[in-house]
């Protein structure tokens, strides 16, 4: 195997170390390739298909996030075929999933690629609580004719620390990887069900408090769409008091143990509303434990009762 490979991206030559993905090569050239299920700190699962692009000689489009660049490869990132598939991925997601909390980048792509989710008709009525759990594989009940089926369903609120709003879930698998093999090794959640009924679940859909969950919140840290959210942010958004423009971010070190994790305290109106850790922090790679992520509100004058047992 050669130490480096040379290929072209949109006609521009690029030389990268062997094993570099197409996505990484594009980023080095400053070519934007949109991604949803990709995260620098996790292994690519190439399921959202938003990063697909054309590779000369390949019948189907190729996911940039997982495919290594090969010697002599001719990659095209902005052809009509590429733009069509990206538009459809965004449009299909927006037609079924609530992307409202997915951040400004997703909103920009939806506009840029011209996604029109309303083409599929008005949304079908939301599923009652629990109805999407435990559906028999291979027996999907369709939406009423003339409507488009969505993931709309009640939010799962079963603990004091965070909520799971699965109508915002694009099934990127990141939370499963962060809970299990690639960060926390807790394995409280997995992908269950099949097809449109595939979903993130604990065993038999038991509440998190009865699962193996240790409430590290690393699933929240990797969630790209706001489907997983700390309870305080969720409640402030519901009350209409969530105001990112009034928030400051202060980097500090976790006061609990000797590991020394980098914390970023998101403060609004002199209140810690969320704690995160940067993806590029040497110690954490974005991951924290229950104490760092949820246990620093003691610095406030009085913690609101809502953080004490969900009252």
């Amino acid at each position: 195997m050669t130490a480096s490979v040379t290929a072209t991206v949109d006609g521009r030559p690029v030389t990268v170390p062997a094993g570099t993905t197409i996505l990484e090569a594009c980023r080095r050239l400053g070519v934007e390739v949109p991604t949803l299920c990709f995260l620098e700190t996790l292994e690519p699962v190439n399921v959202c298909r938003l990063c697909v692009l054309e590779v000369e000689g390949s019948r189907a489009l190729v996911p940039a996030c997982s495919r290594p660049l090969e010697e002599g490869m001719e990659v095209r990132t902005d052809t009509p075929r590429v733009r069509h598939s990206r538009r459809m991925v965004l449009e299909l997601l927006a037609s079924a999933v609530d992307l409202g909390a997915a951040g400004p980048e997703v909103a920009r792509w939806l506009a840029e690629y011209g996604a029109r989710p309303e083409r599929y008709g008005p949304p079908a009525p939301p599923a009652p609580a629990g109805a999407r759990d435990g559906r028999q594989a291979g027996h999907h009940p369709g939406a009423p004719t003339g409507t488009r089926e969505t993931l709309a369903q009640p939010v799962k609120v079963d603990n004091a620390l965070y909520v799971r709003d699965y109508e915002k879930c694009i099934l990127c698998y990141k939370c499963v990887e962060a809970c299990g093999e690639q960060a926390q090794a807790t394995f409280a959640i997995a992908v269950a069900g099949r097809g449109f009924d595939a979903r993130i679940a604990t065993e038999f859909d038991v509440p998190l408090t009865e699962s193996a969950c240790v409430f590290c919140g690393n699933c929240i840290g990797v969630c790209p769409t706001g489907a997983l959210m700390v309870r305080r942010e969720y409640e402030m958004r519901r009350e209409g008091t969530w105001a990112p423009e009034r928030q400051s971010a202060t980097a500090t070190i976790c006061p609990y143990c000797g590991v020394g994790c980098t914390l970023v305290l998101h403060v609004q109106d002199n209140r810690i509303v969320k704690v995160t850790s940067p993806l590029d922090a040497d110690v954490t790679r974005g991951h924290l434990c229950i104490k760092g992520r949820f246990g620093v509100t003691f610095v406030e004058d009085a913690a609101p009762t809502s953080d004490r047992g969900g009252a």
């Binding site: 399921v47 959202c48 298909r49 938003l50 598939s85 459809m88 991925v89 299909l92 997601l93 037609s95 079924a96 599929y120 008709g121 291979g138 027996h139 999907h140 369709g142 939406a143 004719t145 003339g146 409507t147 488009r148 089926e149 694009i170 099934l171 992908v191 069900g193 099949r194 097809g195 449109f196 009924d197 595939a198």
Partner: peptide, 25 residues
């Protein structure tokens, strides 16, 4: 196809649902 899609990738998971809705319409 809607019922047999594994559900992993977006074009198939949601595409087969939209195709079925369209055919039914």
């Amino acid at each position: 196809f809607r019922d047999e899609s594994c559900g992993q990738c977006v074009p198939c998971r949601i595409g087969t649902v939209r195709q079925e809705e369209l055919v039914r319409r």
